[in-house]
Each structure stands twice: as C-alpha cells, then as structure tokens.
Amino acid sequence: MLLIECPFCGPRAETEFHCGGQAHIVRPSNDVDDTAWESYLFIRNNPKGIHAERWVHNHGCGRWFNALRDTVSDRFLAIYAMGEKPPAIDGLEDGNDKR
C-alpha cells in the first residue's frame, strides 16, 4: 500500500484515494476525426518510468490533484495542482529517476 501526500491533508494511506488515471488529457472539439477521438478515449501513455496522473482524496477532503509517479518503483516524485503543468524534476535524466 502506498503512502500518498495529499496536498491538503498530508500523508494518508492509499486506500483513502482513488487514482483517476493519466493526467492532462484534453477533450477535443466535437468535429475532430475518428483518430483524434480514439486517441482521446482510448490511447494512453502507459510508460515504464515517469507517469503524470490524477488522484482524488475521496475518503478525505475529496479534492483532486496531479502527481508524477515512477511506475517502476511506485515512488511519488512530485504532487502539483489541477490545471498546473508537471514540474521539472531534478535528478531526472532520460526518463529515469537517478536519485
């Protein structure tokens, strides 16, 4: 079980949270072609390495936030607000966490 740092409540057990999947997916306008629509609905980054994703503290404050997590170690590397761009991470080279 992960220990997750809610930006509003502090560190809490993973079971208090729900993972909302890949972050920063933008809904396209209605007149895009099928390929763009497919990409919006179904295609996911799924990296072996750093992943930007959304979490909600649904059994706590109920608020959403973004996170960067390493999908190999499961370690959280950064937590940032909804609507913000992912922060640059130092110690990060060629997609791998070297810290």
Binding site: M1, L2, E14, T15, H18, C19, G21, N46, K48, H51, E53, R69, T71, V72, S73, D74
Partner: peptide
C-alpha cells in the same frame, strides 16, 4: 488501482 511495472502489488 494505478498503472505500474513493479511486479509487486499492494498488501491491502
């Protein structure tokens, strides 16, 4: 509930 390549899985 989250994507991962860790080949472990949570205890809960």
């Amino acid at each position: 509930q989250f994507t991962s390549y860790s080949q472990r899985g949570g205890f809960h």
